[in-house]
């Protein structure tokens, strides 16, 4: 963020600056409040089941234990499988999505292209009106037969009209001379696109790519509708099932009496395992998000 927050205001004279102090206090409180839920879940995952039954969820674990994690790791098949699915869907989806969207966006950014205007409208209209859940559902299941197929987690999100238009706007902002020069040199559209336009567009591509990856990683909706095989469940769908059915994750138990299955803490431990990577990635990639929001022309 430091790159985005350049000091532009004149320095004010040094005197006790209580308004600024108040601002700091407010912001600090806010920051704590925003992160608190994460801490609560983290703490619960390290609590013993007995402690949760006694004291409920709390910010500091009563009776610190890693039992819930050991319990989950005792039979990690389900979770590892879900991770495999999510990683595959996210990687393939994001790469394919960037490729097809940027190619289309490039053609829409080429002023000489005769179909430019009608196709731009074609993309735009898809954003304004949608048939809704029911027709899509019937079409995907009855006509495309994509139920319980990994592709159903990827294909529907491949092209987002909004991202296409965003990329087009970015391509339009590139200096025209460079592309013209390339064409004078005899470079075809494909070469211009891959060798000149794409390398110049890394900021936009990074941003759109990250947002797309986030969409794929966080998606449970497509899984909820179209996947009913547990070995095809992505992480988020697994989490969704576990919140009401702990059996989904943990069919193994180290004790004979299921009464001692640590339901609450295991649930929270799985949640932590599922959000861990995204929180870790967050610190590396957040500036791209920020840039994306700024590039996006502030439209939601």
């Amino acid at each position: 963020m430091a790159t985005d927050i350049r000091p532009v205001r004149r320095a004010t004279p040094a005197r006790p600056d209580w308004p600024r102090l108040v601002a700091h206090v407010l912001l600090a409180l806010c920051a704590v409040a925003f992160v608190a839920p994460l801490l609560l879940v983290l703490s619960a995952s390290f609590s013993s089941e007995h402690a949760i039954d006694q004291h409920g969820y709390s910010f500091l674990p009563h009776g610190f234990t890693t039992f819930a994690y050991r319990y989950v790791i005792g039979d990690p098949t389900q979770i590892i499988q879900a991770y495999g699915i999510s990683i595959f869907v996210t990687v393939v989806g994001t790469v394919a999505s960037l490729l097809v969207m940027s190619m289309l966006a490039y053609t829409l950014a080429r002023r000489e292209y005769v179909l430019r205007a009608p196709l731009a409208f074609y993309v735009l209209f898809a954003m304004l009106f949608n048939g809704g859940l029911v027709p899509s559902y019937i079409f995907i299941t009855q006509y495309l037969h994509l139920r319980n197929n990994l592709m159903v987690l990827i294909l529907p999100y491949l092209v987002s009209p909004w991202f296409v238009l965003l990329l087009r706007t970015y391509f339009l902002s590139l200096p025209v001379d460079i592309m013209d020069a390339a064409r004078v040199d005899g470079a075809g559209e494909l070469r211009t696109f891959f060798q000149i336009v794409l390398p110049l567009s890394t900021p936009a591509l990074a941003t759109v790519g990250l947002l797309t990856a986030l969409i794929y990683w966080n998606d449970w909706w497509l899984g909820l509708l179209y996947i009913d095989k547990s070995d095809l469940s992505p992480v988020q769908l697994l989490l969704y099932h576990i919140i009401s059915n702990i059996n989904f994750a943990a069919s193994n138990s180290q004790t004979d009496n299921l009464a001692s299955v640590p339901v609450q803490s295991v649930r929270m431990a799985i949640a932590v395992l599922a959000i861990g990577p995204i929180v870790a990635a967050f610190f590396f990639v957040q500036r791209y998000f920020v840039r994306g929001i700024t590039i996006g022309g502030l439209k939601d």
Partner: peptide
Amino acid sequence: PRLAKVYQSAVFLPFVFSWVVVSYFVLA
């Protein structure tokens, strides 16, 4: 600027969670 960045990151963090994850937070 450093602190501002920390505040901003904290406020932005929930943006990356899915609604399923959020439902766990709320449940807690």
